[in-house]
Design a binder for these strands. Structure first.
Lengths: 178, 178
DNA sequence: TTGGGCATGTAAATGGTTACATGATTTC
DNA sequence: GAAATCATGTAACCATTTACATGCCCAA
């Protein structure tokens, strides 16, 4: 029921693997999902509250220590997650400011565009290293069924980034031959 | 000056090439920028008004016919565009619901995930054909300096999509061997 | 003559981020 | 004992989309 906020499914999907605090959910998003998704505290905490009111997640307040609030998924939540999972993906969106600047590149000129490509390349190179690290780990530790799927998303990132880097070389070559 | 709405720069960038109506701007976005950017009438028309009030664009109302409003860029607008172009890109964002579902794939299972990959592959295959058509055209007609930059963005799309398709094959193979 | 594309616009809702506030705990 | 990180939360803002309203022009 309810609305279409994707953050709800992100949360349910993560909790379906293990109980987590809001803070930990944010960390999972920033590390494991970073390549293809994002989410802020400002959306996570309210969503957790709404999901709990809906009976899709349960909270358990730690009595000792810092009093962390640990959420876990309920049967109802799992059903909602499944319902969403079977539906076709409705939006695969790429929004690259770098490409926008490149498209209007004539006004900026060759040098400026080469700068943008340079920065883009560096960023991608760094992120590729991280992804390759993830992949190496996941290939080593294949103890959970989940890992197969995690690895597939990481492989997607790796192959995409390698294509980006190949394009960078091509683009630099095109621009440098006057 | 003013705000950071990217739609402003999209409009200025397009108008920097040729005068256009709001409707035509929308078409350019949906065709030429589609792969890496989007924008709706609900953002274009108000932005045009604001840009005009700011003196960044000028409008000319067609007296005959339908009374179209044709916008062109001013020197001030071009300066604003340039100012933005030199700044480093701040956000290159990819948000793929397909990958999100894939990440949580264990709950859906092999068959369901293969369906998602299948649909994704078909969509990419279609869009790749379109991009290859663009590239062929741009390679043939190299009469404007702009074309070099347009072609680079198209090449980016083509190489990315080819990597996606290669990944699809790999993913299907991984999932099909039990 | 009717349906599709051209053309302009607006109001409301959306889904989200940013920035802030607060404080506990761990680590150097 | 200072700094970094853990941890929860909220209010204000944000760019943008969606859905709607309106009407013209052209081709089959």
């Amino acid at each position: 029921m309810a609305n279409e906020k994707k953050i709800n499914y992100v949360i349910l999907g993560l909790l379906n693997h293990e109980p987590l605090t809001g803070y930990e959910i944010k960390k999972r998003i920033d590390h494991s999902l970073k390549f293809f998704w994002s989410g802020s505290f400002g959306s996570i905490y309210p969503a957790l509250e709404a999901l709990e009111a809906d009976g899709c997640v349960e909270k358990e307040e730690e009595s000792s220590g810092r009093g962390k609030i640990i959420y876990s998924i309920t049967e109802k939540g799992r059903a909602l997650l499944r319902e969403w999972l079977v539906k076709p993906a409705e939006k695969d969106e790429l929004r690259y400011e770098t490409l926008l600047k490149l498209f209007f590149g004539r006004e900026l000129g060759r040098e400026g565009i080469l700068d943008h490509i340079q920065k883009f390349e560096e960023k991608i190179r760094n992120e590729l290293l991280i992804l390759e690290g993830y992949a190496a780990n996941l290939e080593k530790v294949q103890d959970e069924e989940e890992h197969k799927y995690y690895l597939l998303t990481v492989r997607f990132g790796i192959e995409t980034y390698r294509a980006y880097l190949a394009w960078c070389e091509e683009a630099k070559a095109v621009l440098q031959k006057d």
